[in-house]
Design a binder for these strands. Structure first.
Length: 418
RNA sequence: CGGGGAUUGGCGCAGUGGUAGCGCGCACGGUUCGGGACCGUGAGGCCGGCAGUUCAAAUCUGCCAUCCCCGACCA
C-alpha cells in the first residue's frame, strides 16, 4: 500500500474527548474513528488489525475442532422472554419490528444457538459439537468508555460447546483454556488467568486478564503460587489456592470461559438420546474473547511516547518503507523496486497474502521528520529507509528496538519472512 | 443512573454584551530537504439546539442534546 493513497492521514493533535491512551493513539494514527460513545468505525489500518486478530483466533478455534458459523445480530424477542433475559439483561438493546414485534440486538447468542441446536441434536452420536462465531455484539452500557475497552458495539468471538456429560465438557473446557493461552501468546500480549464468579450464568468461570494500570478490572495475583482471582471472589488477603500474599492489580478482561448451567438447555429443550436409549440433557460451555477489546488492550500495553508498537502477528503491515529524497527519480525508482520485490505476492489484491505486507511512504516533498513521526505513530514492526544515501545495504530499524541495522534486500526478506 | 467538566472553521484552542480570531491542516507560488522547515497569498465558521433577557448575545438566564472523567453498573 502506498501511503499517499491510504485513508486517512495521521493527526498531529489528539481530538478532544479522546482521553484513554488506546483511543488517542488509534485515532491519531488513523486506525479508528469514533461515531458516538462506544461506537467506532474501523478504518483501513484498524480493520486490518482486527482481521489479523480474528484470524489467529480462528486458527486456534479450528485447531480444537471448532466450526465457524455466523449467527444474526437481530434476535426474536420471544427467545429472550423464554429465558427471562428480555427483562433481566439490563444492557439489552430492544426494538420493535414490523407488526409491533419485539426484537433484540444480540449481546450474546445463547438465545439463538440453543434453539438452533435443539432442532438438530438428537443422538449422542451428534455430540460433542463445538460452534463459534466472530460477530458484532451490542450492549447498552450505562457508560461506554476507554476507547475500544468498553464499547456499546464491539467485535467478539463466542464459542459454544455441547456435550453428552459434564466430564466431557470439563475436558474440552481445559482444551479451550490452553487454546486461549496460545492465542494471547501469538497475539503478543501477556495475560493471567483469573478465577471469577460465574454470575447467574455459571457456577464459576475463568477470565483472561491483561495486567495494566489502565484496566478497569481489579484482580489479585498471588505472589507465591501465581494464581489470580477477580475481586468479587476474594474474601480476605490471602490466596484461595495456597494462602500466599495477594497483590492488587488493574487489568483488562480480554477473555472469559464458562461451564454453563443447565437452565438454557432446559428452556430450549436441548436433549439427546444416549446409548441406552434414555433421554438426557445436553451439557454446555461458553467461551468469549473480545476481539476489538484485545486491539485496544494491545495498544495499552505496547506503545511508547511516540506511538503504537504493534506485535508482528497483528501489525497492519510488516514493513514500512520510508522514502526520502523521492523528488529524485533514481531514488523513487529504487524505492519502488524494493517495494515491489518485498511483496512476493500482491497483498493489495488478496486479503490473505503470502507476501510481505508493505506500507510505502511515497509522499514527495514531505520532510523526513514528518515521515519518521508518522512511522513511529503507526507502529509497523520494521522500518526501511530508502534515500540518496542508500547503497547496497538498506537501513532497517525495528519499531520495538533502538539500533539501526544495515541489511541487503535478501537479508531483509529473510528477517521479515521468518 | 448520581457527581464534575466540556461543546466556537476539517482538527486543537482563544475570545465577560457592540454582528468572530489564533495555531495546525488544506489550496497556490517560492525557498528548504535525515526527526513534525520557512516566507508570501488564499479558501473555509449564521459560535451544539430551542426558548428567553436586551437597542444589541459566542458572551447573560432557562430547558434540552452530545462527548469526556469519577462513581454505581458490567449475564
Amino acid at each position: 500500500m502506498k501511503y499517499s493513497r491510504l485513508f486517512p492521514k495521521t493527526l498531529k493533535q489528539v481530538p478532544s474527548g479522546a482521553e484513554s491512551l488506546n483511543h488517542q493513539l488509534l485515532v491519531r494514527a488513523g486506525f479508528i474513528h469514533q461515531e458516538m460513545a462506544g461506537v467506532y468505525t474501523y478504518l483501513p489500518l484498524g480493520w486490518k488489525v482486527l482481521d489479523k486478530i480474528s484470524d489467529i483466533v480462528r486458527e486456534e478455534m479450528n485447531a480444537i475442532g471448532g466450526q465457524e458459523i455466523f449467527m444474526p445480530v437481530l434476535h426474536p424477542g420471544e427467545n429472550w422472554k423464554k429465558t427471562g433475559r428480555f427483562k433481566s439483561f439490563d444492557v439489552l438493546y430492544k426494538l420493535k419490528g414490523a407488526g409491533d414485534k419485539d426484537l433484540v440486538l444480540g449481546p450474546t447468542h445463547e438465545e439463538i444457538i440453543y434453539p438452533l441446536l435443539a432442532e438438530y441434536i438428537n443422538s449422542y452420536k451428534d455430540l460433542p459439537l463445538y460452534l463459534y462465531q466472530i460477530q458484532t455484539k451490542f450492549r447498552d452500557e450505562p457508560r461506554a468508555k476507554a476507547g475500544l475497552l468498553r464499547g456499546r458495539e464491539f467485535l467478539m468471538k463466542d464459542l459454544y460447546s455441547f456435550h453428552t456429560d459434564d466430564d466431557d465438557r470439563d475436558e474440552y473446557y481445559k482444551k479451550v483454556r490452553e487454546a486461549y493461552f496460545k492465542i494471547f501468546k501469538r497475539i503478543g500480549i501477556p495475560v493471567v488467568k483469573t478465577k471469577a464468579s460465574g454470575g447467574t450464568f455459571s457456577d464459576l468461570s475463568e477470565e483472561f486478564q491483561t495486567l495494566t494500570p489502565s484496566g478497569e478490572d481489579t484482580v489479585f495475583v498471588c505472589s507465591k503460587c501465581g494464581a489470580a482471582f477477580n475481586e468479587e471472589i476474594i474474601k480476605g488477603k490471602n490466596c484461595l489456592d495456597c494462602g500466599g500474599d495477594l497483590k492488587k492489580e488493574k487489568a483488562i478482561e480480554v477473555g472469559n470461559i464458562f461451564p454453563l448451567k443447565r437452565a438454557y438447555a432446559e428452556v430450549f429443550n436441548l436433549y439427546f438420546t444416549d446409548k441406552a436409549g434414555e433421554k438426557r440433557i445436553v451439557s454446555a460451555g461458553c467461551f468469549g474473547l473480545g476481539i476489538s477489546r484485545t486491539m485496544g488492550a494491545i495498544v495499552e500495553v505496547s506503545h511508547d511516547e511516540k506511538g503504537i508498537i504493534w506485535p508482528e502477528s497483528v501489525a497492519p503491515f510488516k514493513v514500512h518503507i520510508v522514502g526520502l529524497d523521492l523528488e529524485d527519480k533514481t531514488v523513487m525508482g529504487e524505492a519502488e523496486k524494493i517495494y515491489k520485490l518485498l511483496q512476493v505476492a500482491d497483498p493489495e489484491r488478496s486479503r490473505r497474502t503470502e507476501g510481505v505486507e508493505v506500507l510505502f511512504d511515497d509522499r514527495v516533498n514531505v520532510s523526513a521528520g514528518v515521515k519518521f513521526a508518522d512511522a513511529d505513530l503507526i507502529g509497523i514492526p520494521y522500518r526501511v529507509v530508502v534515500s540518496k544515501k542508500t547503497g547496497d545495504k538498506l537501513e532497517v530499524k525495528k519499531r520495538s528496538g533502538k539500533e539501526t541495522m544495515f541489511k541487503t534486500l535478501e537479508q531483509l526478506v529473510d528477517i521479515v519472512c521468518s
